[in-house]
C-alpha cells in the first residue's frame, strides 16, 4: 500500500496582527494548525514579550526576581534592560501597582509610567491592567490615551469591563486583548460583543485564559485547539484573531517554581525546575495554538525561541 500523505487544507486563516511603530512585531497569518508548514503557509513565527511591572516584583519567586534585581525598581530601566540586553521582541508592562490591594495607584500615575516607558524604548508595548475589572476600566482608558499613536496592545478587556476598554483602544488605534475564562463559547461571545461596538475584528487578540502546567493546563490546551480548529475548518471569523498566553504570571506563582530542593529532594534543582516549568507551559501552548507569549525568565525565553526556530 503506497503512502499518500493525508494533508489538510482549511478554508479559514488566522488574522495577521502587527504591533509597534518604529520597530514592529508581526504574528498570526497562518492557514494551518500550529507549525504545520508542511501543508500550508505559516508566514510569522510566534512572538515573545518580556513581562515587566510598574512596581518592583516583590511577589515573584527568587529564581526570576533575582534576574532583574538591578533594574526592577524602575519600569523604565527594566524596559530598557529587556530591549537592549535581552533583545526582547516586545515588552508587556503590567500595571500591578494600580490594584487596590497593592499600591492603589491612580490612572494618572499609570499613564505617566506608560509614557515614560514608551519614550525609553522603540519595540512594541503591551499594556496590561492589574486584573481588577473595575479599576482596569479607568486605568486602561488613560493608559490607552497616553500610548496614542504607538500601536500597542491594550489588555485585558473582560465581560465586565470591555465597553470602556474597547472604546479607548479603538479611539487611540491600539490592538485589544479580549479575555474570557476557559470556555470557547464565552470567548466567541466576547469577541462578538466587542466587534459589535465597531471594533475591528482584525485588531483583536483572544486570551482564552492561561494556566500553568499541572494546574489546569489541559483546559487551556484544549480550548485553544478547539478555537484554532473552529477558525480554520469552520472559517469562523470570530475565532480567527491570534491568541495570547500570559504564561509567566501563571507559572511563577505555583509551588513547583518556589519550593526549595531541600524540602522536596525528588523535585530536583529549584532554579532549573522553575525555568523548565515556564518553558514546558509555553511549549505546550505554542503547539495548541498560541501566537503571542508573555514570559518572565530570560533563560526560558531563550529556550522557547530556539525551539520556535527549530520547529518553524
Amino acid at each position: 500500500m503506497a503512502f499518500a500523505a493525508p494533508k489538510e487544507t482549511y478554508s479559514g486563516k488566522v488574522y495577521e496582527v502587527t504591533i509597534g511603530t518604529e520597530k514592529t512585531a508581526v504574528f498570526g497569518g497562518e492557514n494551518v494548525l500550529p507549525f504545520h508548514s508542511f501543508e500550508g503557509t505559516t508566514p510569522n513565527k510566534p512572538v515573545i514579550a518580556y513581562e515587566i511591572q510598574d512596581v518592583s516584583p516583590d511577589d515573584w519567586p527568587e529564581t526570576v526576581k533575582n534576574v532583574y534585581a538591578g533594574v526592577s525598581g524602575d519600569p523604565v530601566k527594566w524596559a530598557k534592560y529587556c530591549q537592549d540586553e535581552l533583545k526582547a521582541d516586545a515588552i508587556a508592562l503590567r500595571l500591578t501597582g494600580t490594584h487596590p490591594d497593592r499600591n492603589n495607584r491612580s490612572p494618572e500615575e499609570a499613564a505617566k509610567t506608560v509614557k515614560d516607558v514608551l519614550s525609553a524604548v522603540n519595540i512594541p508595548l503591551i499594556i496590561l491592567g492589574s486584573n481588577h475589572t473595575e479599576k482596569d476600566s479607568s486605568v486602561l482608558v488613560m493608559a490607552s490615551e497616553a500610548a496614542k499613536g504607538r500601536n500597542c496592545i491594550i489588555g485585558k478587556a473582560q465581560e465586565a469591563n470591555y465597553k470602556t476598554i474597547a472604546a479607548a483602544a479603538m479611539a487611540n488605534n491600539h490592538k485589544l486583548i479580549a479575555m474570557s475564562e476557559l470556555d470557547i463559547n464565552l470567548s466567541k461571545q466576547l469577541n462578538i460583543l466587542i466587534t459589535q461596538m465597531g471594533f475591528d475584528k482584525e485588531k483583536l487578540i483572544t486570551d482564552p485564559m492561561c494556566s500553568a502546567l499541572g494546574y489546569g493546563l489541559e483546559y487551556t490546551y484544549s480550548v485553544m485547539e478547539r478555537i484554532r480548529l473552529a477558525a480554520l475548518s469552520q472559517n469562523d471569523a470570530t475565532m480567527q484573531p491570534p491568541m495570547v498566553g500570559d504564561v509567566g504570571m501563571y507559572v511563577w506563582k505555583i509551588k513547583e517554581t518556589q519550593a526549595a530542593e531541600a524540602e522536596l529532594p525528588q523535585w530536583g534543582s529549584l532554579e532549573e525546575r522553575g525555568i523548565a516549568w515556564e518553558v514546558a507551559t509555553a511549549g505546550a501552548l505554542l503547539i495548541s495554538g498560541i501566537e503571542l507569549l508573555i514570559m518572565r525568565h530570560p533563560k526560558a525565553v531563550d529556550a522557547v525561541r530556539k525551539f520556535i526556530s527549530e520547529i518553524s
Binding site: G214, L217, E218, E256, P265, A276
Partner: peptide
C-alpha cells in the same frame, strides 16, 4: 534530571 522528570510527568498527566 529530577526537575525535568517532574515537568514531563506533569505534562503527560495533563
Amino acid at each position: 534530571d529530577k526537575w525535568k522528570n517532574l515537568v514531563l510527568f506533569s505534562l503527560r498527566q495533563n
